[in-house]
């Protein structure tokens, strides 16, 4: 899939979304003692969202296809501006 070359922005956006969902007031929306499909709704939403965030990070952290060999330590982790 395509890399946008703006990982820093995406990363910060994801961080902000994380804060937004987990902090009040949004957290209070699903924070109710109710079962959904037999599971507490807060339990489902929190773990589900958590899993999504992890998936997003994993997606963002994948290496460039061309440097997929394990010894590609020259692949800089800082200031990645040129992901393309």
């Amino acid at each position: 899939m395509r890399r946008t070359g703006r990982k820093k922005e995406w990363t910060l956006a994801l961080f902000c979304v994380g804060i937004l969902v987990l902090f009040p007031p949004i957290v209070s929306i699903f924070d109710k003692p109710v079962l959904v499909m037999g599971l507490p709704i807060a339990y489902v939403v929190l773990f589900g969202f958590w899993g999504l965030v992890i998936a997003a990070v994993a997606y963002g952290a994948r290496r460039k296809a061309s440097t997929d060999d394990p010894g590609a330590s020259s692949d800089s982790l800082i200031d990645k501006q040129s992901d393309s």
């Binding site: 994801l14 987990l22 990070v57 800082i78 200031d79």
Partner: peptide, 27 residues
């Protein structure tokens, strides 16, 4: 109840921005 979770959600959020906090510190 569920209020033990922040202790693990916080680190998850930090690892979201790993590329410019953690990576910088490590470098």
């Amino acid at each position: 109840g569920l209020d033990f979770l922040p202790i693990y959600l916080g680190p998850t959020l930090v690892f979201v921005v790993w590329s410019f906090v953690l990576a910088k510190i490590i470098r």
